[in-house]
Every structure is written in C-alpha cells, then in structure tokens.
C-alpha cells in the first residue's frame, strides 16, 4: 500500500467557512484578469456561480472583497479590494506553509513519522517500567540481545505498551556511535 498525505486549507471566520482553494483561485483569477467573467472562465465555472461565491465570502466576512468598476474606459472590470487582496495573501501563506511542511522531511522527523537513515529492528517487549514522566522499555530483538528505550510515559500509555507486544525499535543512524578498542 502506497499512500501520500495531503492537506486541504480553508479559512474560517466566526460565521463558519469563508473560502477554500476554489475561492482562492477565484480571487487570484480576478486579481490577474481584472474581470470576474474571465476569472470564472479560467476556473471553468459560470459567471453566476463565481458571482455568488464572492457574495458568499463577503457575507461571511462582512466586507467587500471585490469591486466592480463601472463607466469610463474601465467599464465592466472587477478588481480586488484591499480586504480581498489580504484574504488571498493569507490563504496563500497558510497553504504554502502547510505544503512546505509536507515536503519537508525534517518536519516529519520531528513528528517521528518518517526518518531517513534509520535502523528498524523488530522485537518483543519484555519489560515496561513507568516512573514519573519517563518509561523504561526493554525490547528483546534477538536471542540474548536487548535494546533499552527511554520514552515518555505518555507515549508508553498511548501505545498501550506491555510485555509480549510485538514492536519495532527505530534508531536514527546519526545517533549510533562506533567504539573500537585501540590496538595493543
């Protein structure tokens, strides 16, 4: 099974969901094209749908995000208001941050989810000793080989670790030291 994690970003106000990716693309379209009709075309939605979407965003926020310019040579144009630009910027920031986090192996490592250059050794729990905030876990990984792990009591609790459990012990390769006797 090969799966990949994804995130969806949307902005929320007290009144509920303001906009998700579709809304952000619509705002971006208006910003680029200067026209709601062109923005709707770009997204492959009807003008009416796009218009309603903008009104929905404005209803939730209580401010205008796009304004139509009438008259003069600029007739029929739609532009983003300052509030609209700010909203788009916020969305893009959040979404960039989360997507960067997804692509960043160090973030995954920090969560203990994915570790490059690791040693994974299957074993069986022999002992769990919880003492205050820390727990000492002894795992038998081979005949007469036992690995000692000091983990948080919370983790031991979360994993419901008990003797007899089949587990994997993971040790980052950078945390392994090599000791060698000096030649006599």
């Amino acid at each position: 099974m090969k799966v990949k994690p994804r995130v969806k970003v949307w902005l929320e106000a007290d009144e509920g969901s303001v906009m998700g990716r579709g809304g952000a693309e619509l705002l971006k379209g208006v910003l680029d094209e200067g026209s709601l009709r062109a923005a709707a075309e770009r997204l492959g939605v009807s003008y009416k749908y796009a218009w309603n979407y903008l009104r929905k965003i404005e209803g939730k926020l209580g401010v205008k995000v796009a304004a139509s310019i009438r008259g003069g040579s600029e007739r029929g144009r739609t532009v983003l208001t300052e509030a609209g630009k700010l909203l788009l910027l916020k969305y893009m920031r959040f979404s960039r941050f989360l997507n960067n986090a997804l692509e960043n192996p160090e973030m995954w490592e920090a969560c203990g989810i994915s570790i490059p250059d690791k040693n994974v050794v299957p074993g069986r729990v022999r002992l769990v000793k919880v003492e205050g905030p820390a727990a000492m876990v002894k795992v038998e990984v081979g005949a007469s080989v036992e690995i000692v792990a000091a983990i948080s009591s919370a983790s031991a609790d979360e994993l419901n670790l008990k003797p007899g459990d089949d587990v994997k012990v993971i040790i980052k390769a950078t945390e392994v030291m090599i000791s060698k006797e000096e030649p006599m």
Binding site: I151, S155, V169, K172
Partner: peptide, 20 residues
C-alpha cells in the same frame, strides 16, 4: 572486518507498535 561496538543512548530509541 574490524571488531567494534555500536553504542546508542536509550533516549534516542523510538518504539513503534502497529495498530496502536
């Protein structure tokens, strides 16, 4: 071919269990 010892601290060991 060198005879060595591998050493790591208990606090650097992560314990994972399938199915929580």
């Amino acid at each position: 071919g060198d005879k060595v010892e591998v050493v790591f601290k208990a606090t650097e060991v992560i314990v994972a269990k399938d199915g929580g």
